[in-house]
Design a protein around this nucleic acid. Structure first.
Lengths: 248, 248
DNA sequence: CGAAAGGTTGAATCGATTCAATAAACGTGG
DNA sequence: CCACGTTTATTGAATCGATTCAACCTTTCG
């Protein structure tokens, strides 16, 4: 039974019943592998022979395009699965940002497991959905958000994904260059924007000079600045009425 | 058996054995539905109760973000499947650009078919892969390509997807605004860029004044200008090591 | 025909980039 | 442990590409 799920790298999904443990079962017997900072897990174009689970650390997922420009399409953290293939080849490279620990599963085994385990499919499904949604969001961000909106979006999502609710301290494992390449900006613009947000009192630094650890002072304000209009903007009442209802 | 495949809209894949007919079987008995120009197929947030196959015409797939800005994430043509869901809801809206014909299949039926038909899975798999790859490409485009590179990329891909090999005439069903919202530009920039390419002799218009029909005069030149570096740039052997991490 | 929609073009503006200089943190070896 | 070079980050000034605002033109269609 062919398996289609290992197409994309999949983020740790929004919390759900027992997906994690379900997935963990797949990898529990695999030996751990250690990656030093900067070490590559695989390269774009490599034969996609394995699916990986991140146990610890943070990785960047990126493509190098002509002119040496780098585009980071996502970051991977503990719990994330990456085992992307298109026609058997990885669509991008992945490398460790921090010292990391991963487990590896041969694609054949992964396929077999998904084929035979009914309970596994919805878990993978959810991750593919999340991945697709993330790609959509990223396209929106890159299409039409300002530098400030991009950075705020990044911080809000990072806060939601990588800290417990209520926590307002972000330890960024990635450099400004990583952030820039992820947000479609330059390091200078990222730096300036961080400074601007700090001056506005929206965020601050735990330790002056150690600017990798950020404290969000005004989470609500930060959310406002994402440009996602989570707040109810007053729209003309007839907007919905004007939209033609689905027909047939 | 839960089915994960209807997560994303899937483009007509690069040519392959019998995928189309395989998919067609699914829809062959469904009645056709007609959409007028501008008519919506579904809205972002709607219950994703159906999967659609485009029989004829072109549709745009988009999200409206705060401030009324619109981001088009893709176009759909004959043969494409769209049946997107995340947690049961469409991630975006879809509406007809030209008068279009679609077929509809209840998601339950679609799921059942994919579950029971072994031959169908790889076909759907290939489409999900294509969709993911397209999303990646779009992120690269939006992250770091100039207006000219974006337009050339769009035209090259359109040529490849929607015409027979060797054909150099493009009839664009979408407006400049559609193109702009797809490429993350303004209509003015799209217009200017088209004019600039025409002045360079890279493309021309079939009929003066009818600027929806474009003839590509220099396909090779167009490909060069996509910024994808498909051409082998002479790089020293240890290219990855030497490439300076150029900023943007 | 005349209005509306879509498209082009010009001039001014703006946000982000580029270039450049400085500063702070890190890692290595003495 | 400190010195010193390397990497990473910040900040300023000039520049550039795309946007915005505005005018005008073309095609479409009631």
């Amino acid at each position: 039974m062919a398996n289609p799920y290992n197409t994309v790298h999949t983020h740790k999904p929004t919390p759900h019943a027992n997906g994690a443990s379900c997935l963990d079962r797949l990898f529990v017997k695999q030996p751990v592998e250690h990656l030093a900072s900067g070490q590559s897990l695989f390269f774009e174009g490599d034969d996609a022979k394995h699916v990986f689970q991140v146990v610890e650390g943070t990785l960047r997922v990126f493509r190098i395009i002509s002119g040496g420009r780098r585009v980071i399409t996502g970051f991977l953290d503990a719990g994330d699965i990456v085992g992307v293939s298109l026609r058997g080849r990885y669509l991008y490279s992945a490398e460790a940002i921090t010292p990391s620990v991963v487990k590896r599963l041969a694609r054949r085994q992964f396929d077999a497991a998904v084929a035979s385990d009914e309970g596994l499919r919805p878990v993978i499904f959810a991750r593919v959905c999340d991945e697709m949604a993330a790609a959509q969001d990223q396209m929106v961000l890159l299409s039409s958000k300002s530098a400030e909106e991009r950075l705020c979006t990044f911080l809000v999502k990072y806060l939601r994904r990588n800290t417990v609710p209520g926590c307002t301290i972000i330890e960024l494992p990635m450099t400004r260059l990583d952030i820039a390449d992820y947000l479609g900006l330059t390091i200078e613009t990222v730096s300036r924007t961080v400074t601007k947000l700090a001056n506005k009192g929206i965020l601050g630094f735990e330790n002056p000079g150690l600017r990798h650890t950020i404290r969000i002072e005004r989470p609500g304000m930060l959310a406002q600045l994402t440009g996602d209009g989570d707040d109810h903007e007053d729209l003309p009442g007839d907007l919905l009425a004007l939209r033609e209802p689905r027909r047939h």
